[in-house]
Simulated scan of single mutants.
Amino acid sequence: MLHNFTELRQRAAAGRQYRLCVAAAADEELLAAVALAADMGFVKPVLVGDGETLEPMARAAGLQACSIVHCPQQDECALTAVRMVSSGEADVLMKGRVNTSEYLRAILNREHGLRSGNLLSALAVYELGEYHKLIFCSDSGMNTAPDLGQKAGILHNALSAMRCLGFDMPKVAALTANEAVDPKVPSTTDAKALADMAAEGKTLPCLLEGPIAFDVAFDRDAAAHKGIASKISGDVDLILAPNIETGNALGKSWLTLNKAQWAGVILGTIRPVVLGSRSDTAEVKVNSIALACLLAQASPSLGEHVEAAPAQLHTSTISLSAKRTQ
């Protein structure tokens, strides 16, 4: 169990340092977050962008040691960063001042991208003062109206990530409007099918209930009032959203009305990918970086690859000579 982002960042800092490659890194608040993560000890920054712009910005942000990969063409930054992560020259990918669709195209590039063969999905993690631990939610940012097969893929991605974080048996709520299975409401039939799959051992280990409404999932009194004998009520780890609108609205309501903190990553790639909003605070960006680094640290194959990778990047000083693209 992770109670809050302080614990998550502390756990990341207790592991190895990972090379964080930022695509189009010329953003003051982003660089401030990268500097914080570097100071906490879990990243070695690799900044991709125009070197003449990036060098003074990096110094102003307080970055004491990083590599700058000179890429003067803004539209080439995402693919350059993805190539470096795919080749093992960097370990974690992060979005800077680059359009999200352009960023995703680079990730999905067939020659140099980060495809794993699995469905790509977004995993969001929230810290609310009113809840006793971090809440995971998927998918609130990539798959708009997933069918049952896609929901199974989203669930697999999320459970795989949570296993990396130490969750042996996550409590999962397949969220719907109510607990009745109604053929006219596909989210309810999908939720029931997923619950059956979990009960039959056809998913990674988890305790999944569905269909289940939000009040029953998070309020034991509501479950008792409705006569529902839930084993997850009031102690949910993961919300499986029925569609992007539900996941997105739920998350944004927490951020807006509950002043929640959050972190976000893309799952289904061969290496950890950070995907946030340009409007995210430095603290949110650090949370996402820490989450991605924990996922990298927990991957044995990734760890072996990093150990074997040649030290091609100079991280002791800010330098334009680290690598240049033509």
Rank of each mutant, 00 (worst) to 15 (best):
A308D: 12
N157L: 01
M1V: 13
P183E: 08
S86Y: 06
N4I: 13
P272L: 01
Q297D: 13
T53A: 14
G88P: 08
A223W: 09
G276P: 02
S299A: 15
E29H: 12
Y126P: 00
E127R: 04
N248K: 12
N157P: 03
P310G: 04
G247M: 02
P72E: 14
A223S: 05
V306F: 03
A33H: 01
K184H: 14
M1Y: 15
A195V: 02
S67C: 08
L120S: 09
S233D: 07
C164D: 11
S86K: 13
A65V: 00
E102M: 15
A229S: 09
G234W: 11
G227L: 09
A224P: 04
K259L: 06
S116M: 11
G210K: 04
R278E: 06
L134P: 00
V46Q: 14
A309K: 05
L104I: 11
A161V: 13
A241C: 11
H225K: 05
E55I: 14
P310S: 03
E179A: 15
Q64V: 01
C293V: 11
T325D: 07
D190T: 01
V273Y: 12
L320F: 06
R16D: 10
E200T: 08
K192R: 15
A24T: 11
S233E: 09
C66K: 00
I239P: 00
N248P: 06
L54F: 03
G201C: 10
K231W: 06
G201F: 02
F42C: 10
G96S: 14
S253Y: 08
T144W: 04
K252L: 05
A199G: 07
E52R: 07
K151E: 00
S319P: 10
A292K: 02
C206N: 15
A309E: 12
A33C: 00
Q10E: 12
G227H: 06
I68G: 04
P186M: 03
A296P: 05
H314C: 10
N109P: 00
S321H: 14
A38K: 10
A296W: 05
I107V: 15
G41V: 02
S187P: 04
